[in-house]
């Protein structure tokens, strides 16, 4: 650990108001993102990945409450005034969404959607904004940029739409890109192009990336480090090869299923028996216990802490030694 982290999240907890009660979708989540690093966030649907991303810049519906710390450029974004937060959003931290067909405004030409970002965060004049918009479409690999800027989202193919969304998000050169399943809605070949594009842009613009996915193959192919989420908590984190090679949490092991090694082959998460708990009924102890083949009494009564196993690798599992041993045999 040489440089200071670009983003440092501590004890992030996000709760939603359900009228009669409050539920916590994200519980006590902590992680760091280094400059230039790609951090993968993986977990089944509903595990709190999107809420975690959105909580960072408080892109949440009214009634949601965020606590903990999100330290960005020396400031805590939790509790930052809306006016200051607006400067961070899009200007320093940008976000792209899963479904480019719905995340782009259908009634505005791409040009307007790029230029409004530039207007909000740069001092470029009209001509400057036009020039920059065209450069951005060039940068993300949309051909014939000058003409396509005046087109509407429905005139773009799925892959081109995702490129357009990336161009819009990156317009004001943010230092951190939050990508929420950016390739899930795309064909496999297009997926690779978009992931490569994100990596290239990371290099070119020197930004960090938090990449949410439920595809371990995507993590293996793109990320430097990863965190596994279950029922609103991070249950395991570390470098991609250690975590995928020697998982120390029973849930991660379950996700890996029969994937032989962290590598080239793309595998959709293997389904684990059962379903994640409802937010209103998270079991005491380890939330994964009802579905876990390793579960013992202690798992059902005491919540496991996230503890380091090896350098930079941590898991929240009472029986992580046993879990590691499992894969040790098969690997």
């Amino acid at each position: 650990m040489t440089a200071a982290p670009a983003l440092s999240v501590r004890n992030l907890t996000t709760t939603f108001d359900l009228g009669a009660s409050r539920v916590a979708a994200v519980r006590d989540v902590s992680f760091d993102v280094m400059p230039g690093e790609v951090l993968g966030l993986v977990g089944e649907s509903g595990s709190g990945k999107s809420v975690t991303l959105r909580s960072l810049t408080r892109l949440l519906p009214s009634g949601a409450e965020v606590s903990g710390q999100v330290i960005w450029q020396g400031r805590n974004l939790v509790g930052l005034a809306p006016k200051d937060l607006r400067k961070v959003r899009g200007g320093e931290i940008s976000m792209i969404f899963q479904e480019p067909a719905t995340a782009l405004n259908p009634v505005l030409p791409i040009r307007v959607q790029i230029e409004e970002n530039l207007r909000a965060h740069t001092t470029l004049d009209r001509a400057g904004r036009r020039r920059r918009s065209q450069e951005l479409l060039d940068l993300v690999g949309i051909p014939d940029a000058a003409r396509r800027l005046d087109e509407y989202p429905h005139q773009f193919s799925g892959g081109m739409r995702q490129r357009a969304m990336i161009a819009i998000a990156l317009a004001s050169a943010p230092r951190l890109l939050l990508a929420d399943e950016p390739t899930t809605a795309l064909d496999v070949t297009i997926q690779d192009q978009i992931l490569n594009l994100i990596l290239d842009l990371r290099d070119e613009l020197g930004m960090s990336v938090v990449l949410v996915t439920h595809d371990l193959g995507v993590i293996a192919q793109t990320c430097d480090r990863m965190a596994v989420m279950y029922a609103g908590r991070i249950v395991e984190e570390g470098g991609v090869s250690p975590v995928l090679g020697h998982p120390a949490h029973a849930y991660t092991l379950g996700l890996l299923g029969s994937v032989p090694q962290a590598g080239t082959e793309r595998t959709v998460l293997r389904s684990i028996e059962g379903t994640p708990p409802a937010l209103s009924a998270i079991p005491p102890g380890c939330a994964f216990a009802p579905r876990c083949v390793f579960a013992t009494d202690i798992c059902r009564t005491r919540a496991p802490e996230l503890v380091g196993t090896t350098e930079g690798h941590a898991a929240a599992c009472h029986h992580s030694a046993m879990v590691r041993h499992q894969l040790g045999v098969s690997a």
């Binding site: 892109l59 607006r86 719905t102 995340a103 405004n105 307007v112 969304m165």
Partner: peptide, 29 residues
């Protein structure tokens, strides 16, 4: 609830712009 409103917010636009350019127009259609 549409994604494009969340996307517009994630760009750090002023709420007036989000209201008129992104919400009003689509709702009026």
């Amino acid at each position: 609830d549409a994604d494009y409103v969340a996307f517009a917010e994630s760009k750090g636009l002023r709420s007036g712009i989000i209201l008129f350019r992104h919400i009003l127009r689509n709702a009026l259609i």
